[in-house]
Each structure stands twice: as structure tokens, then as C-alpha cells.
Design a protein around this nucleic acid. Sequence first.
DNA 1: CTGAAAGCGCTAACAG
DNA 2: CTGTTAGCGCTTTCAG
Lengths: 352, 352
Amino acid sequence: MARRKQAVTIKHVAADAGVSLQTVSRVINKEPNVRPAMRERVQASIEKLGYVPSIAAQRMSGSRSYLIMALNDRERTIADWEKREGTDWVDQMMFGGMLTCAEHGYRLIVELIDTHSDHIERELLAAIAALQPDGVILTPPHSQNRQIVDLLDEHNITIARIGSLTGGPGLRLTMDDERAARLATEHLLALGHTRVGFIAGSPEYELSAWRVDGWRTAMAAAGLDLEGLLAESDFSLASGERAAVRLLDGDAPATAIIASNDQTALGLLNVVRSRGLDVPDDLSVISFDDTPVVRFGYPPLTAIEQPIANVTARAVELIIAARAGEKPPASPQVVPAGLVVRESTAAPKRRR
Amino acid sequence: MARRKQAVTIKHVAADAGVSLQTVSRVINKEPNVRPAMRERVQASIEKLGYVPSIAAQRMSGSRSYLIMALNDRERTIADWEKREGTDWVDQMMFGGMLTCAEHGYRLIVELIDTHSDHIERELLAAIAALQPDGVILTPPHSQNRQIVDLLDEHNITIARIGSLTGGPGLRLTMDDERAARLATEHLLALGHTRVGFIAGSPEYELSAWRVDGWRTAMAAAGLDLEGLLAESDFSLASGERAAVRLLDGDAPATAIIASNDQTALGLLNVVRSRGLDVPDDLSVISFDDTPVVRFGYPPLTAIEQPIANVTARAVELIIAARAGEKPPASPQVVPAGLVVRESTAAPKRRR
DNA sequence: CTGAAAGCGCTAACAG
DNA sequence: CTGTTAGCGCTTTCAG
């Protein structure tokens, strides 16, 4: 096959502007030490010829690939895609990530990696070797996976970790899950609930604990007892059902329940329905994911809205800034999640 | 910043296997004319060292970039992302595209391009220059945009056009919209409807006409009159509402309506509700998109399920095969959409 | 502040 | 069937 060549290269620009390649390169990379007049002349040629640098060539010679890799959990992502229930983690990451990347001449490329796998190292090394990304955005559970984080760090790749604050290298970002849980709890308390149950997320996720903390804090501030109000889950629908049974079967059942994600919220709703209970009359429900099932189901659930696009955008900015030599922020970056009130929460009406 | 070098390159493999670079290259690219023994030896070294070729370097020297670009309409895609209603075009394209790409050592990279824009050429040329993709997957409306298609063709990029059969270069793929519309219509006819209305999609999309054709064919086959049963739309909710009014206001209103996408279906439902009509008792409804709003709304709508992941996967396969020198299929590839029956369609019950 | 030379990792073209 | 040579487009030294 014919060697496919770049239509207009740095050479053409250099020739057109009557300068050397280096000067053009310097202008492209916004390096200092170029006289304004020269810079303008080159810029004009670039525009005139419609020159755009080849990222492959940039990667080959320089230290930058202009590629940022968004690393997601393969199993979970594929499961979501297969279900077609509208879970939009990946979309929102692209939304925030792609657009922000574009502003800086970078591209976002999505990769899926198995979490629970012995060949995780091989997979990741392969992706690194093939792409040589400048930065990687990690989401849970990868963001707290020390093996992944360390491996990337050894390869001198800038890391942005969303939803993990544990040790190791990398920039940290959170959506302040603790605060979000607090907001949700306070919303229910304000409605008059005193027995607010909480379905904790999978203990394998750091943020599960943060959410429990938020709930606990809000309950404690109101002087309320937590006895029998905390149930575990692994984020699955089935575990949500089991948790719901536990929270509703005690002597003093919960009158409101916060679920740590949409699946457990759905499991909870299954149990509620099977018992002929009404939401929100008999039980108020809050989901920690604002996915379409949650929004369009009946009733539309009050939910925590996670600003995935915004954290990802922030992550991209941090990575690019770090590459540009800026000192990374000392503390974790917070892009707080909010609460969207819908029809699944109300004052506790009936006595049971 | 330090020059970041590849951990293990083709050189290391060559040294380890005691052969020349070229032989390693031949093995990597599965070229013929390599003795099995040699091939095995090299393969062993590759595995031992965990070698993975750098796609940047591959692009630099060869004719392949191992990048396939999925080109989507910027405005529409961003609008979908902002709404967070779970529209999963992009996800499904990634689902089918990424996984199939991975099987062949390719990567899928998503790009957004404005359709209605005078700088469309500049945007596209920039993407081409930066990425040098081997192939591009086009979805409507880009797939029928002659300017885009021709530009890509001039740059010797393999094109896969989904949902467009008009002239010009490129591999063609459809979901057989005509058949899908026929299926939907026949489903309603089988239920006993004789006045099946159709809300046509935006005339700017080729497939809008195909869908109308399918409906028309099915109606004609049943010997039914089409008078007052076809309404236009531009795919927007508002236009769906207007179309609904038209179809329901005549002397002999429709007892069933097929909407060309989810938004017009939603518009239709708005009108239905505002008139106190019941779905499906007073009116059967079918959507041409199976998005979460459609699935989780009340009632869950009978809908056409578009196999976006599968067409995209097929598109990737065709592109890679074409690059490998295979003769492209003579006729358009068809990955047919199916009908999912839910609760919005029933026999016409009441007389109005 | 600007330019020239070297080389990134890989493959096309050509020899052997 | 295998090896050698040149060069892709760009940036990083290092000189002026």
C-alpha cells in the first residue's frame, strides 16, 4: 500500500514562512523565546495552509502523545452497554473529557481494563505501549487499584484518580460523596423522617465508606439512633433487595432509605412493591445514581446527581497543567455532587 | 521533559530472537513469506518481552495508523449528553466498535463534527491531519454528506457509511429501516388497526423516506387508505406534537401511530395525555428508537430496536478487511433492526 | 532568539 | 525467505 503522507507538514509551513522547522515547532508548542513578529508570521502561514500537527509524529519525537486515556472497568462497562438502560458514565466522561481535551489539542481515548484479573498488568502495559498516553483518568474501582496506579506512575504517566483518596501517586478528585450523602439524609430529616436507612455500597469501593459517613454524620447531628438502619450491598440489584428486607423487617423499620446506587435502589423498589407499599407514602427513597431508570421509572426518584462530566473535565485540565509543568494542587479537587428532588421523597405519612 | 522511550521496541525483540527488524515487523503484521520456525521464534520473543507495537511509530512509517474514527454529529451528540436521558448511540457505537477494533489491534476514537457549518471542511481536515485514521465510520446525517464523504475519499481513508445509500464512495450499511417500519406497521395491522398513522422523520435524513416507504408498503399490502395518516416532523419533540395533532384531528383519526424517533414519540404522548386519551386503549404507539425514556416511561413503548453496536462492529470489520486488501462487498450490508413489543400497542378497543 | 543535526520506532522498497 | 537502507513528521539536543 502506498505510503500515505501528510498533506501539509511543518516543512511546508517553514518554507512558506521562510523560517526553520524549529521556529515553527516552537510556535506550535507555544514556547517562549520567539519574537512576536516571527510568531505572527508563522501563525499566518499555519492558518493559510491549514496546518495541523500529526499527533503520531509529535509522539514519535517528543515526550507528548497528546492522548489522554480514560480507563474504565471492562466488565461493568460492557454490562452497562449490553443492558442499554442508559447508564451514562462513559458518555459523561467523554462529554467532559473530549471537549476539554479538544481545547488543548489533546484527544481522549477510552480503554477498558479488567479489574479482577491476573493479566491486568499485561493488558495495561499493552495499552501503554500502543498508545503512550500522556495521562490516564481512573475511575473506581481502578482509581484505588494500587497495582494500576503504580504501574502508570513507573511509566511516567500523569494520573488523575477520581473517587479515591488512598495513598500512592496521582492527582485526586472526588465528588464529595460524604457531603452528598449528608445532603440526602438532611433532605429526609427535614421532611420529618427519623428512621432513615442506608444501603451501603460495595466495601471494595472507597467511596462506599464516605457515603456511609455522610449519612452517619447527618443522623448523629440530629441526635438520631442508627440501630438497624445500615445494610450492606455489593451494588447489585439482588443485594439491594436483601438490604431492603433487612431495613424493613426490624421492629422499627426505616421510613426512608438511601440506596448507594441505582441498582440497589431498584432492588429496594422491587421489595417495596412486592409488599404493596407505596413510594413515597409508605417509604421515601433516594438513589445515589441519577440514571434514566431512576428518572423515568415510577415514581421518578429523588437522587444524587453526580457531575461526572465536570470532574472528568477537571481531571483533564489537571493532567494537561501537570504536563505543562504546573505544580499539582496540594489537596484533592472537589466537584460536588448535588441532590435532585423528585417524587420519591415525602414526609412520613402513615403509621405502620 | 525527558524523552519518554518505549520500554521494549522491535529492536529488543529482534535482538532477542536473533533476527532482523524486518522479520519481526513481518511477524507482527502477519505477512506471508516467513518460515514457520522463524515466525515462532519471533513470536516467542514478543511474548517473553511483552512487546506491543507503538501505533504512533506504525503510523509514522507505514500506511496504517490503526485508528478508526467514529464521526458523529456534534450538536446532536452534545445535546444528548447534556440531557442525560440515556440516548446511547455513542455508547453502542463504542460497544460494537471498540471491541471489534481491539480484536484486530485497532482503536476506535470518537470525533464530533458540526454538520451545518461552513468550517466543516476545516474541522474534518484537522481531524484527519492530527489522527490520520485508516477508516471513518459515518452515521446520519454525516453518512450522506457528500462533502464529508468526498473529502475523506480524497485522503484515501476507508469510509463506512451507516444509514445512507446515495451515491459517492464508501461502504454502505443499513439497519433496513424500510423493513423495520413494515414490521411495526404489520404488528399494528395484526392487532386489528386499519388507521395506522406515521410521523415521518426529518426529510434531511435519507432513512426517513425508507421508513415511510415501509409503512406505505405494509398499508398498501393490506389494501388500506393512507389519506390523512402521514405527518411530517424534524425529529424534535415539538414537531412530534404538531404531527400528533394533525393525525388525531381529522375526521377519521389514527388509532395507532408510529413515530420516527423517541422525541417525536414523546411529543405524541404529550398530546395524547393532554387530551386524556389512554395508551394503548385509545391509541397504540410505536417509537423508532428504543431509548430509556421509551423503555422506562409509562407505559413502556413498543419500539424498533436498532442494532447500533452490531452495525458498527460490522463497519469496523469491513474497514479492516478493505485495508487488508479484500474486495468490498458489492451490495450494502444489512444488519436488520427488530421490533420489541411492550405495552403501548393493543387492539383498537374503544370507538370514538 | 534562531538554526542544524540527530533520532524516536517502525515499515516500504529494494537487495541478496 | 531474510536483511539493509532510507525516511515518515516532529522535537530534542546543541551550536551559533
